[in-house]
């Protein structure tokens, strides 16, 4: 059991409260993504778990052991940094073996782990190079290999793919997932990229302003966002959030909204908006053609919304189209932006 359990974690810097009462638990062998916008405290949480940052309050358990005040090297964690943190004066081989040498692992074990790991990630031809002579993707692989050979049960990653181009990022995403499963690692992965979170995670912890916004599987977050923030953070293009009282006929389409406070909001995913023969009249502002699909930017009264339709849309900017949606596709949020069931 090498799951991570964070309880009421707080990090306070003078007047800034970067992490505010965060609690979550991850299962052994699972991949948990810490997701959130820039500055929400993801890195700080990760660094507290690694032991690189002191905890202001709360506790951290790894594998059932309280490690809140434990030395970083004794927590059974390895870490991949956003900048990779490779030692520029050491060869790839020496970089990978650095930790094993510190821990005085026998030579033959070092050699075996190095060869296995290097073959796994395709680095075996590059072992004598210096990091300066590697591409971004290769450096990334060296950093990965360093965590593989360490054979620590928990692996922490802080935006490991943010310096790579889109194609390489997709490849590395797969590779990291495959490795994580193959080695049975408990992985905590920080990113601000919702696509990475959706495609890799077993569990997503969505953060905002140092607090947990929602915690669940990617499907739960997508299908039942608990707040308007969660609703808009996941999904591309984001969910349409409309003031309920300004949508013509909202009462007819959404049961029970009548009679509640006027500042409630309804949310509809762009793919759930249909262009139909009859429905609400909306003006087409712009048409973004993406190949397999088209995003229509619409104006419904004074509110903007987006609709996603398959293939190429026949509508042109300036035209008026009729839109409709199914009642079960509507998400309801109260005046505090909290999800309510209709």
């Amino acid at each position: 059991m090498s799951g991570i359990r964070a309880t009421n974690l707080v990090k306070q810097w003078d007047e800034i409260r970067a992490v505010d009462d965060v609690s979550f638990e991850t299962q052994q062998g699972s991949l948990t993504v810490l997701l959130g916008p820039s500055g929400c405290g993801k890195s700080t949480i990760l660094r507290m778990i690694a032991g690189l940052e002191e905890v202001s309050a709360g506790t951290i358990q790894i594998d059932g052991q309280d490690v809140t005040r434990e030395d970083p090297s004794k927590r059974g964690v390895s870490m991949v940094f956003q900048s990779y943190a490779l030692f520029p004066h050491l060869s790839v081989r020496e970089n990978i073996l650095f930790g094993l040498k510190v821990r005085k692992v026998p030579k033959d074990v070092q050699e075996r782990r190095l060869n296995d790991a290097a073959r796994m990630v395709g680095l075996d031809q590059l072992l004598d190079r210096r990091p300066a002579n590697l591409s971004g993707g290769q450096r990334q692989r060296v950093a990965l290999t360093r965590t593989i050979v360490s054979e620590q049960p928990v692996c922490l990653m802080d935006e490991p793919l943010s310096n790579l181009d889109a194609k390489l990022r997709a490849e590395m995403r797969d590779e990291i997932c495959t490795l994580q499963r193959k080695l049975g690692l408990t992985m905590l992965y920080v990113t601000h990229d919702q696509i990475e979170a959706m495609s890799m995670a077993d569990q997503v912890v969505l953060l905002q302003g140092g607090k947990i916004e929602q915690h669940g599987t990617p499907a739960e977050l997508y299908e039942a966002p608990q707040t308007t923030f969660a609703a808009r953070f996941l999904g591309m293009p984001p969910m349409n959030i409309l003031a309920a009282d300004q949508v013509e006929g909202a009462a007819r389409m959404i049961p029970k909204v009548a009679g509640t406070s006027g500042s409630w909001q309804i949310g509809i995913r762009p793919e759930n908006i249909h262009i139909a023969a009859k429905g609400l009249a909306a003006e087409v502002g712009a048409v973004d053609y993406m190949g397999a699909e088209t995003v229509l930017r619409l104006k419904l009264g004074s509110q903007n919304l987006m609709a996603r339709v398959n293939g190429r849309a026949s509508a042109a900017p300036g035209e008026t189209v009729n839109i409709s949606w199914k009642a079960q596709d509507v998400h309801l949020f109260d005046e505090h932006g909290i999800r309510r069931t209709g």
Binding site: L52, P72, S73, F81, F87, G99, V102
Partner: peptide, 22 residues
Amino acid sequence: PPELGEAARLEGANRWYFFRRV
């Protein structure tokens, strides 16, 4: 970069080792 020191700390390198090797 400070990450070099942090990476070494995670591996359990003490200050002297880090100084000597890095």
